[in-house]
Measured scan of single mutants.
Amino acid sequence: MFYPNSPQTSPQLTQIPYGQQYAMMQRQIQQPYHPFATTEPQARLYPYHYQGPIQQEQGGFITQQSTAASPQYVQMRVTPVDQSIMSGYPNQTANGSSSSSFNYNIHPQQQQQQQQQQQQLRHHAMPVGSVPLQDDRYRKQLIVNYLAPDVTSTDLHELFSRFGELDGARIIYDKQTNMSKGYGFVYFCHAEDAKEAVERMSGYEFHGKWLKVGYSTNPLNIVPSNSSPYVHAGSRGAAG
């Protein structure tokens, strides 16, 4: 039997160049792979992502010199942007860049009308829970959420009447099932009393439920100042 490094198959040491006398086997001759043993700084910083320098080929596509990437890492192929796409944008300079302001050559009167329309939209648009300043009635009506099913309009009136005089209180019921929808409205005579009720009743436990109280901004629920107070009856038909 002959071994790869046996004296019968191995040459004389004098015939082997210096430095390879003890590297006779194939696994010894093959050098191990060192990912950080390279002179390129990109490979030292990113050993798993770097795959060699990027070269520009004919046709405008950018390719990489090395083989496919590892399945664990996804390499994105980048193509140059066609400058003709950006030619339609206004205020574009000769080098292809555009300024931040756009001039669509709008007539001054049209621009003024658009600004007025935007101001009107901001004036009428009102986020949930906010209180408008032009109508004091919005500051007097509250919406009470997360009410228990057994709470009546009379219970709601008695709960909030300790903060001040009320114009009314009612629970909203479903017309088909005649069941409470879980929320109601309270109408105060003074805005200061309503503000105190919002601050003190939010998070209050009532009939096993934690109440959420806020201003009601729905104009359909506003009680006119010259109208008669609501009837605080315990029956659902009268309260709904």
Rank of each mutant, 00 (worst) to 15 (best):
G164L: 01
L211K: 01
G168I: 00
M25A: 14
Q12W: 02
S99W: 08
E199W: 15
E192I: 09
Q119F: 11
Y3C: 12
Q176T: 09
A239K: 11
G59D: 10
Q116F: 11
P35W: 09
Q141Y: 00
E158Y: 14
A43R: 13
N5Q: 08
G203W: 06
F36T: 14
N5F: 04
Y215I: 02
P35S: 06
P132E: 03
Y138S: 03
G184M: 01
F36Y: 13
T14P: 09
Q110Y: 15
D82Q: 14
S66R: 14
G168M: 01
I172D: 00
Q15E: 06
P132I: 05
G237W: 14
I16P: 13
E158G: 10
N178W: 10
A233C: 09
N103W: 05
M179D: 03
D174V: 03
P108N: 13
D135W: 04
R162P: 08
F102H: 04
R139D: 03
S66E: 08
L156S: 00
M201K: 02
R77A: 06
S99G: 09
P4N: 09
G59V: 05
I222L: 06
Q65R: 15
S101A: 08
T217P: 00
D136S: 08
T39N: 06
K175N: 14
D167Q: 06
Q15R: 14
Y173N: 07
V81M: 15
G237P: 06
I16C: 09
Y3K: 15
H157G: 13
P53Y: 09
L147D: 01
R122M: 04
S130G: 08
A233L: 12
T154Y: 02
T93R: 12
I222E: 01
Q111I: 11
Q115Y: 05
I62L: 11
Q141H: 00
Q176S: 07
P41G: 12
K212G: 05
Q120V: 10
D82R: 15
R77I: 02
P224L: 04
Q119A: 13
Y3M: 10
Y18C: 13
N221R: 13
L166Q: 00
N226C: 09
R139T: 08
Q120G: 08
L121Y: 11
G182F: 01
P47K: 15
M76H: 14
Q141N: 00
P11M: 04
I62S: 13
I62W: 04
H190C: 06
T152A: 11
F185T: 01
S180V: 01
I62H: 12
N218C: 02
S99K: 15
A239D: 05
Q56M: 05
Q65N: 13
Y46E: 13
N103S: 05
F2Q: 12
Q75V: 00
Q114K: 08
D82P: 12
R77H: 12
A69M: 05
D167P: 01
T9C: 06
K140G: 02
K212L: 02
P7N: 07
T154V: 05
Y89C: 10
T14M: 09
K181L: 13
A23S: 11
P47M: 02
V231A: 10
F185M: 01
K140Y: 01
S97M: 13
D136Q: 09
Q112D: 05
N178L: 15
K195P: 02
S6N: 10
I54E: 13
Q119H: 11
V81S: 10
H232Q: 06
G129R: 11
S99I: 08
G59P: 09
L156Q: 01
I172H: 01
P90H: 12
F61P: 12
L121Q: 05
K175H: 15
A148L: 01
A68Q: 04
A37N: 13
S99T: 11
D193F: 15
Q64A: 08
Q92T: 08
A37M: 03
Q109V: 08
T14I: 02
P90L: 09
